Simulated assay, not measured.
Amino acid sequence: MKSTFDQPSTLLRTLGGVTLLALEAPAGPFIVESTDRLSIILHRSASTRTYCKEIGRHFVRRVNDIDVVPAGEVGGYEAESDFNALMVSIPSWMIEEARGDIVEKQTLKARHLLRDHRIVQLVSILEMDRRSGFPSERLFIDGIAMAMTSRLLSLDRPPNYKAGRLSDRQLKRVLDYIEEHMDAQLSLDTLSKVAAVSSSHLRTWFKAATGSSVHRFVLRRRTERAREMLLETALSISEVAEMTGFANQSHLTQWMRRETGSTPRVIRKSR
């Protein structure tokens, strides 16, 4: 992503290539130049009067208004005052994966002043992770980005779209892989290859089969294994966190409290 202004920003870049920019933009031109990435801009200022040269009209952008700039297109506007925004940039391979086989020919459209609660929620989750020091792993970031891309595609999904499912054998392969690689940095890309489906289909079909997102399922299994290790071994809490795939002891504590209502220290003392 390139723009025509200098702005203080905080950048999140994951192994999958997803970026998050927290923008503090001055009045003037706000231009997103053509790249091979999808850009989603979430407006965070109360009220900003803007001018779109393409349409030749003024618009007022408010909190949670969304602009979408597809790969290969130029976007932006002229802002009459300073404003804040969050910009998520998603690599082209995720766009292709999100299209899947059924909507192979579907293209993302440029959008302005879009209002969509689901996209706002997903961008806000990434922003919360940024503010927390980025404790989440690639699987989590990949899932959020894929969900945003799929949501945009669904706005123009053809009426004959039909959802599929994972076979029992495919689901077993994914579950077995998760169990055998609990300490590793898992990603949707890796797990989709295990299942031999697209990342987009895995994300949707896994939840249909298990009632849980891939990321939440993995965290739940990691928490369960960590609890077993705390009760059955003499390993330190930090060692248990590392061996079960958590970023650190604090990350383990956060999710163990959320899943069990207790903490690693309390569980260790209950042996």
Rank of each mutant, 00 (worst) to 15 (best):
M1G: 03
Q7Y: 08
Q7I: 09
P8K: 14
L12N: 07
G17I: 09
A22T: 15
E24D: 15
A25C: 09
A25R: 01
A25Q: 02
P26N: 13
P29I: 06
I31R: 07
V32C: 07
S39T: 12
S39V: 09
H43Q: 13
H43F: 14
A46P: 03
A46F: 09
S47L: 14
T48S: 11
K53S: 13
E54C: 10
F59D: 12
V63W: 11
N64Q: 15
V68K: 06
V69T: 15
G72F: 05
E73R: 08
G76Y: 07
Y77H: 08
S81N: 11
D82K: 13
W93Q: 07
M94P: 12
A98D: 11
R99T: 01
I102K: 13
V103D: 04
Q106S: 07
Q106L: 12
T107Q: 10
R111C: 06
H112I: 08
R118L: 10
R118Q: 12
I119H: 03
I119W: 00
I119G: 02
L122Y: 00
V123Y: 05
M128L: 15
M128K: 14
D142Q: 10
G143C: 08
G143V: 03
M146I: 01
M148W: 00
S150P: 01
R151M: 07
L152T: 05
L152Q: 02
L155P: 03
L155S: 05
D156L: 00
D156Q: 02
N160I: 05
N160R: 08
Y161P: 04
A163G: 04
G164E: 15
R169I: 14
D176F: 05
D176V: 12
Y177W: 10
Y177F: 11
E180Q: 15
H181V: 11
M182H: 03
M182W: 03
D183V: 02
D183M: 00
D189T: 02
D189N: 06
L191G: 01
L191E: 01
S192W: 02
A196H: 10
W205R: 06
W205Q: 15
F206M: 06
A208K: 07
A208N: 09
G211S: 13
S212N: 05
F217H: 13
L219E: 07
R221F: 08
R222V: 01
T223D: 09
A226K: 08
R227W: 01
R227N: 02
M229A: 08
A234K: 12
L235Q: 12
L235D: 14
S236H: 04
S236C: 06
S236W: 04
S238Y: 06
A241H: 00
E242D: 05
E242M: 09
G245A: 06
F246M: 10
F246P: 00
N248I: 04
Q249H: 12
H251V: 05
R257C: 13
E259A: 14
T260I: 04
G261M: 05
T263C: 10
T263W: 05
R268F: 03
R271E: 14
